[in-house]
Design a protein around this nucleic acid. Sequence first.
DNA 1: ACACGGAAGTAACGCGCGTTATTAAAGCGC
DNA 2: GCGCTTTAATAACGCGCGTTACTTCCGTGT
Lengths: 340, 340
Amino acid sequence: MATNKSQRVTMSDVARHAGVSRTTVSFVLNDKPGVAIPDETRRRILEAIDELGYRPNAGARALAANRSGWFGLITEIVTGPFAGEVITGAQSRAWGDRRFLLIAASEGDPAQEAAALDQMLEHRVEGLLYATTWHRAVSLPKAAREVPTVLVNCYDAQGELPCILPDEVSGGYKAARRLLDAGHTRIGLINLDPAIPAAIGRREGYERALREAGITPDPSLVIPGWATADGAYTAACELLDRPAGDRPTALFCGNDRMAMGAYDAIKERGLRIPHDVAVVGFDNQELIAAYLRPKLTTLALPFEAMGTKGVDMLAALAAGQPLDTHRVTVDCPLLERSSV
Amino acid sequence: MATNKSQRVTMSDVARHAGVSRTTVSFVLNDKPGVAIPDETRRRILEAIDELGYRPNAGARALAANRSGWFGLITEIVTGPFAGEVITGAQSRAWGDRRFLLIAASEGDPAQEAAALDQMLEHRVEGLLYATTWHRAVSLPKAAREVPTVLVNCYDAQGELPCILPDEVSGGYKAARRLLDAGHTRIGLINLDPAIPAAIGRREGYERALREAGITPDPSLVIPGWATADGAYTAACELLDRPAGDRPTALFCGNDRMAMGAYDAIKERGLRIPHDVAVVGFDNQELIAAYLRPKLTTLALPFEAMGTKGVDMLAALAAGQPLDTHRVTVDCPLLERSSV
DNA sequence: ACACGGAAGTAACGCGCGTTATTAAAGCGC
DNA sequence: GCGCTTTAATAACGCGCGTTACTTCCGTGT
């Protein structure tokens, strides 16, 4: 059927087979507004497409229309569930606009990152999403300025690029609030590295919730767990070995791995979760949270939603529309399981 | 600089700026063999490229060369670490050939899968990788036959397509062997759903290792844990509550989540890992294995290696070379941590 | 009879590039 | 001086498609 050497069916083949010109085929394929095609002709063409098994060549179409349809997504690491969720969200949202996502991992290596960026620009992406595994400041190679760019889970050190961030403060607030609602008044916070945005924001929310409940935050109940299970284990031991009455009855952990460490400390002391000590985690790492015993109540980082929102903003930017907000925050939902 | 309306620098711009023809620019860009370009001319052209910030248009290049440079990767779910590892492996290998990966998630939905496949074919992928999250049989839409296809972590129900699978048997063998070497002779196997390839293969390897050590496998030591932490917990309880002497001193679990359940059962009984009971997992889910206490010795599913190998095979197929093996198995490395 | 307007469809150009065939200039032996 | 080969570079075509401008045909009104 196909007459060219690549053996692929082209629009001309369809046109010939339907007895019309290639232009007409193009018109029905694109539902060109303002051009009326009689039903009979349209039918013949669609039939020919079907019979020949014609597939439009996306590359050629992009070239002719000067519109690639690509969005790029650069992420540090594809391994680990986070990137996957961002991809899922972005991909499904992009689909709606008949767009495709070009995904590349930098593996944290600036050289690979630059190479990925180059490739994306050569593929004429119409927008770029840059996602990190943890909330922090980044600064992108200047090539990223050639195309609309939105940061996901990170913010521009120069403050120029728009970004989408998890609402850490409201997350911390919700965690503490949940524990307060369960009747706890002495709530320990085993925090991440105190210098990073997640730790700062969550502590702020935690303290706000306490104050709202008429409790003055006790700084001695806040201990850094350094984002590891071992660090959190040590921190939890310190808190739990306080004299009864001074000992916290609930622990809010900076992430789920740390909650794992806290669980061990609690169980070692013969204490029961949540009866003696309640625990709330953060991140909702399914593999941990859903399989700890008892299952862990935790806050989810809204990676999928952030991915979706990222494509939203990119679509707006690519269409030349101005952004309503330069810095968007997305809520962290509380997932109730059995540890409170 | 650019004279066309899209405001993008094209090869013609470079040619004009360097005072040569577009053809010459194309020749230096592609290092055309058989065509000699004087150093002086080459220098002028490269300089012009640099000054103008020219980037080749990958789409146009693909169209003209009739070679898209794309490989497609369809996976069920991007969330979860497995897909990420496949992507990482495939991506890095593809990079070497200056190829790009087109990634799509089917979310287990046949409609989405078909749509993704269509999109890939419209983008003229030169090969297709189809990866699943767990080892099983699949059957692909016939459109997948239009292009070289390799299955990753699954095999064709019709037995036609080439595939890459983890070596479950050798994995089971290594796990049991490791425990035997540590002096254990009564080794419990808390298996996955007994009907799936992973369970069958691993059990086979486990029994072979026992026989090699002169031990007759005791079927009563093999209990299905149904791939959940709770199921494994129950199974472990059953094994551990046997009378002393009849009780296994080591547990080989079908996956790391199940090992989590086993840990709980062991710790509840006041037993110590690995002193009283040794544990080996499977899958190496970092989030679990590396953060359990003690850290879990387990076997890794070689997702990254399978991704790499997949691109290897695809590259060969796309180049028209025959495959040496239709069904490739990749070794599962044993990761020693502290539970044996 | 004529002009006119809409319907149906097409020829032709260009998107940015790879590639082949061809030209123009330069070197070389006699 | 002439023919011949090598070097340096280009004109021109086509990849598959979107799009504009144009043609042809037919029915309608006067």
